Amino acid sequence: MVRTVFAVIYIVLLVLGTLPRLFRMKKLAPTLSPEEKDRLVHKTPDSFGKGMIKASGSTVEVKGLEHVPERAVLVVCNHQSNFDIPVLMGYLNKPIGFISKVEIKKLPIVSTWMELMNCVFMDRSNRRQSLQAIKDGIELLKNGHSLVIFPEGTRSKGKEMGEFKTGSFHLAVKSGVPILPVTVNGTYNILEANDNKIKPAHVTLTISEPIYEEQYKDMDLTELAAYTQHIIASKL
């Protein structure tokens, strides 16, 4: 419990400490290229992700960084824990935005950073808004910004994976970007396995080879989701 309280206080201070840089990032010149803007903006989320892992006392082992393309990608990842997001921000070594639930927009400071990171907020209870969110994500990918999806739709809170939903794979198919399968393992041991009390754990982040358009163009969404899930599951 002491570690949990310390970690929460540390994380709150981390968030508040980003305010000066947040104001500077909001004033970036609109003429900057997507790559340059992402590079500048994501310095803080990357540092924040590592800070959250440090606060939990956990360690992260990364495998397969050489598989990360320089171009925009759709990162497809399994979802074990709330700590998956800081692990991806801090250790994937690539500027990324997230397809996020719309409720996160209520969080001050955090939601503003997410907008700068080109995150897309999705209200799964509103079909029309969900479709618009997918369209927005496709445009971001076409414009050179990478996005992360968790196709299970919710945290598994353990090692077992839920079935991948097919809808979010429209993001790759409609934009033509590579799919980057990423496997996270052990994050649930930081929080969810301990009655939501933070404890140190060892996390492995495994990046598999990208699936390029030439490989998936003849697959339907069900086949593509199952193929991607198989790759991710094989690294657990």
Rank of each mutant, 00 (worst) to 15 (best):
P210C: 12
E192D: 09
N78S: 04
S47V: 02
G97K: 01
R124N: 10
P108R: 07
K142I: 03
L16H: 04
K159E: 15
T31L: 03
G49M: 08
L74T: 13
G97N: 04
D38P: 11
V8L: 15
Y91P: 09
L147Y: 04
R39I: 00
D136W: 04
L40Q: 12
S100R: 10
Y212I: 11
E35H: 04
K174G: 01
K106L: 12
L88P: 09
V60E: 05
D38W: 06
N143H: 14
P178R: 10
P181V: 08
E209N: 13
M114P: 10
N78L: 01
V203W: 07
N93T: 09
P34L: 00
I190Q: 10
I99E: 09
I211S: 04
D195E: 14
M219I: 13
P210H: 08
H202F: 03
P69F: 06
S156C: 02
I179V: 15
L141T: 01
T228R: 02
V148M: 07
A55T: 09
E36S: 14
A226Q: 15
F150S: 07
L32G: 01
H145C: 08
V62A: 11
S208Q: 15
V182D: 10
A55W: 11
L180W: 10
H170D: 12
T204R: 15
P86F: 07
R124M: 07
A233N: 14
T59V: 07
E35R: 12
P86T: 13
R21D: 05
V173E: 06
E35I: 04
R124Y: 06
M219A: 11
M219R: 06
R3M: 12
W113D: 06
S111C: 05
A233C: 08
P178V: 14
M117S: 09
Q229W: 07
N194E: 07
I190L: 04
V203Y: 07
V87K: 12
V182Q: 10
K26H: 00
V184F: 08
V177G: 00
I149W: 03
P45K: 03
N82Y: 13
A172P: 02
Q80S: 14
S111P: 06
F150Y: 15
V120E: 00
M25D: 05
I85Y: 03
D220K: 01
F169D: 04
P95I: 10
L180D: 08
K37T: 06
N194A: 02
I99K: 06
Y227E: 12
V148N: 06
L16T: 11
V2Y: 12
T206R: 13
G64W: 02
Y212A: 01
A29T: 01
I134P: 03
L221A: 08
S33N: 06
R21E: 14
G49A: 05
P95W: 11
A201I: 06
V5H: 08
F83T: 11
N196I: 00
K142V: 05
M219N: 11
I109V: 15
V120N: 00
M117Q: 13
E214Q: 15
R3K: 10
G97P: 05
E70K: 13
H79D: 07
I149F: 12
P108K: 02
F6T: 09
K217C: 03
V184T: 15
F169W: 04
I190F: 05
P30H: 03
S33P: 07
R128M: 11
L205S: 05
V102M: 09
Q129M: 10
E192Y: 01
V15P: 00
G64Q: 09
K142E: 12
V5Y: 15
T228V: 14
K217H: 12
M114N: 08
K101V: 10
